Amino acid sequence: MPVPGRACPPGVLPVVASLVRLLAVALGLLAMLGSARAAPEKCPRMVAGAKPLRLAALDPPRGIGLLRFAEATGEVRLTFLGHASFLIESPAGVTIVTDYSDYIGTPVLPRVVTMNHAHDTHYTDHPDPRIAYVLRGWNPGGGPAHHELTLDDVWIRNVPTNIRNGAGTEYDGNSMFVFEVAGVCIAHLGHLHHLLTPEHLEVLGRIDVVLAPVDGSYTLDLDGMVETLKAINAPVVIPMHYFSRWGLDRFLARLGKERQVEEAASPTVTFSRQTLPKVPTLLVLPGR
């Protein structure tokens, strides 16, 4: 310890300064890691201890090593059931139906269903009691719904949005649901009524396939939906929630100026990280 009235020995001050800098860096890293834990995860999810993908550009800095990318295998199978309902099947056999209701039948008993309540064609008050997980996009008790669920090779979460309610707004009344399966991030926009904020887009993360309502009246207007899909910038857009071929063609004429339009013969399509299209694609699936 320095004695009052005497100078510090040569070399002590630089050492002390270096220690102070190292302490500041350590505290900063701890603060960053704390913020990362507090923030909601987004696609593609990062998982502690999972086997990493062989992508050098995505490797975390040496010396941290706490978060690694989960390895993606297999293909996700997607079937358009009609209206706003899709059957999602994972390589491990997890089955999910979106906007599950009494209006659209399902070919299998799903393990998970998601629902929104803008209209009764998007939810039911009496889901099959054999369904293991019923995820409502609204909170019956008020406030935003919060879902985050991992089942085998599937990760599911919701992003709350607002809906029109008569002449007013029901805040957090519905949700967009995000599914990560086989390394593919799928976003179902639900009954979206408004443009997405930068915060919405940040929480969504990287989206590979977006399921978009394109009626242009009951949900977001056509200009707003086109703007939203440009902001999400997913490689694949699949339209849903349209009521006539005229309505679908009106949407295709707008977004099709910037995307390759493909019309599938089957309502079922499969995706993997390796088979996602290199050219932005607008994929039309026939409803069942």
Rank of each mutant, 00 (worst) to 15 (best):
M1Q: 11
M1L: 04
G5N: 08
A7P: 01
A7C: 00
P9F: 15
P9Q: 15
L13M: 15
V15M: 06
V16N: 00
A17N: 13
S18R: 09
L23K: 05
A26H: 09
L27D: 04
L29C: 12
L29A: 11
A31V: 11
L33Y: 07
G34Q: 11
S35C: 06
A38W: 14
C43P: 03
P44W: 11
M46A: 11
V47Y: 08
V47E: 09
L58Y: 15
D59H: 10
P60D: 14
P61G: 07
P61N: 10
R62G: 14
I64W: 14
L67E: 14
F69V: 15
G74E: 06
E75G: 00
L78M: 06
L78H: 04
F80N: 13
G82N: 10
S85T: 12
F86V: 02
L87S: 09
I88D: 01
I88L: 15
E89K: 03
G93L: 00
V94T: 14
V94E: 09
I104F: 00
G105W: 01
G105M: 00
P107K: 08
V108H: 05
P110R: 11
A118T: 14
A118N: 10
H119Q: 10
H122Q: 13
T124C: 01
T124Y: 03
D125W: 02
H126E: 15
V134M: 02
P140C: 05
G141D: 13
T150I: 15
L151Y: 03
L151A: 01
R157N: 09
P160S: 13
P160L: 06
T161Q: 08
N162E: 13
N165I: 01
E170S: 06
D172R: 08
F179S: 07
F179L: 14
E180K: 00
H191L: 06
H191D: 12
L195I: 07
V203C: 08
L204T: 11
V210F: 01
V210P: 02
L211S: 13
L211I: 10
L211Y: 04
A212Q: 10
P213A: 14
V214I: 12
V214D: 06
D215F: 00
G216N: 05
T219Q: 04
L220A: 12
L222A: 09
D223G: 09
D223Q: 13
G224N: 13
M225I: 12
M225S: 04
T228G: 04
I232G: 01
I238R: 00
I238C: 03
P239K: 12
R245Y: 07
D249S: 10
L252R: 07
G256M: 04
R259P: 04
R259G: 12
S266P: 00
T268D: 01
V269A: 04
F271Q: 05
F271H: 07
S272D: 07
R273K: 12
Q274V: 04
Q274T: 13
T275K: 02
T275L: 05
T275R: 03
V279S: 12
V279R: 11
V279W: 05
P280S: 03
L283P: 04
V284I: 15
L285I: 08
P286K: 10
G287M: 03
